[in-house]
Simulated assay, not measured.
Amino acid sequence: MMNHLCGIGQSSSSLIGLICKKHTLNLFQFSSHRGIMNLCKVSHHPIRHLKDAFLRSSVSDHDSDMYKRASLSLYESLVAFGKGWATYSTGTAKQYHQIGGAANFRQTEPFSLILPRNIGNKSTKKKNDAESTYKILGSGMILLKNYLSISDQVEIVNICQEVGIGPGGFYQPVFLSGAKMKLQMMCLGRNWDPQTSSYTRYRSDGVQAPSLPDTLVSLVETSLQESCALTKSKDEIPLMSPDVCIVNFYTTTGRLGLHQDKDESPDSLRRGLPVVSISIGDSAEFLYGDTRDTQKAKKVLLKSGDILIFGGKCRHIFHGVQSIIPYSAPLSLLQKTMLRPGRLNLTLRKY
Results as ranks from 00 to 15, higher is better:
residue 119 I to E: 03
residue 186 M to I: 12
residue 267 D to R: 11
residue 241 S to W: 04
residue 277 S to R: 03
residue 342 G to R: 03
residue 144 L to E: 00
residue 255 R to K: 06
residue 169 G to A: 01
residue 137 L to I: 04
residue 127 K to H: 14
residue 156 I to Q: 02
residue 245 C to F: 00
residue 265 S to R: 10
residue 36 I to V: 06
residue 141 M to K: 03
residue 144 L to W: 04
residue 345 N to W: 05
residue 114 I to E: 12
residue 131 E to D: 13
residue 292 R to A: 14
residue 199 Y to Q: 00
residue 151 S to F: 11
residue 117 R to D: 09
residue 166 G to R: 05
residue 99 I to V: 13
residue 75 Y to Q: 11
residue 173 P to I: 01
residue 27 L to W: 04
residue 107 Q to K: 15
residue 49 H to F: 13
residue 37 M to A: 09
residue 252 T to R: 11
residue 142 I to A: 06
residue 61 D to G: 07
residue 129 D to P: 06
residue 14 S to E: 11
residue 336 K to I: 00
residue 294 T to Y: 08
residue 3 N to F: 06
residue 179 A to I: 12
residue 9 G to I: 09
residue 201 R to A: 11
residue 214 D to W: 09
residue 18 L to I: 07
residue 152 D to I: 06
residue 40 C to E: 01
residue 179 A to S: 15
residue 236 E to F: 15
residue 144 L to R: 01
residue 74 L to N: 00
residue 109 E to S: 14
residue 271 R to F: 10
residue 136 I to W: 14
residue 144 L to V: 13
residue 213 P to D: 10
residue 74 L to W: 02
residue 141 M to Q: 10
residue 108 T to H: 13
residue 277 S to D: 12
residue 20 C to M: 08
residue 229 A to W: 04
residue 99 I to P: 10
residue 330 P to Y: 03
residue 174 V to F: 02
residue 170 F to V: 03
residue 126 K to N: 08
residue 305 G to C: 01
